[in-house]
């Protein structure tokens, strides 16, 4: 009987001690918020387009960091962003549902614009300038191509144009050898395509 008593007492006492130490450690190493949100947010293209089903990049990052959302919902980011997020979160990559289209720019046909300011209100990055009853125009350097301004326009005067390719931004393609393609297939395999 004393054996059992000793056993319970020592085990319980030891567990209590460990609990107290851990409780103190919890205070010392308390983590404020989820530091992963910012890290995921940093990987997103910040188009604020809402194609992921969340109202913007930050909310999607929050959902991903909380493991509530899959890593493959960012359409403009494409495969590269998906891989980066999967890598950061330590989860299996998943195929991107929708191929990322070529980068686009919104363009206002100014002679048709009636100056209603609805697109200005819709633009998530303040890239449209104009005033009521004045022509609006879109700053090409700041447009993320999110298409959020197309829908509200009452006269449909906003076009989505393909972003012009600049020679300064040209970069070398992969060499066209069989082995280089092998390497790329491997990458796609990792991305869950194969």
């Amino acid at each position: 009987m004393t054996g059992l008593f000793y056993a319970l007492l020592s085990l319980g006492g030891f567990a209590l001690l460990a609990g107290v130490v851990l409780a103190i450690a919890q205070q010392v190493f308390h983590v404020e918020g989820d530091p992963m949100v910012d890290k995921v947010d940093n990987l997103l293209p910040q188009t604020q387009c809402g194609q992921c089903g969340y109202p913007g990049c930050k909310p999607y990052a929050t959902a991903v960091a909380a493991l509530e959302a899959e890593v493959n919902h960012c359409v403009p980011g494409g495969e590269r962003t998906m891989l980066a997020i999967a890598d950061l979160m330590g989860v299996e990559p998943k195929a991107v549902e929708q191929e990322a289209a070529a980068p686009m720019l919104a363009f206002v046909r100014e002679d048709e614009c009636i100056g209603c300011t609805l697109c200005i209100k819709a633009c998530p990055v303040d890239a449209i300038i104009g005033a009521p009853k004045q022509y609006h125009t879109i700053l090409a350097d700041h447009c993320t191509g999110c298409e959020l301004c197309v829908e509200p326009c009452p006269v449909d005067c906003i076009d989505m144009l393909v972003k012009p390719e600049l020679i300064e931004h040209w970069s070398w393609p992969l060499p066209k050898t069989r082995r280089s393609q092998l390497g790329h297939e491997r990458r796609e395999h990792h991305a869950g395509h194969a």
């Binding site: 293209p45 188009t47 990049c57 700041h142 993320t144």
Partner: peptide
């Protein structure tokens, strides 16, 4: 570009 967009947003 993403950084600049974030700041604007």
């Amino acid at each position: 570009f993403a950084e600049a967009s974030r700041v604007r947003s």
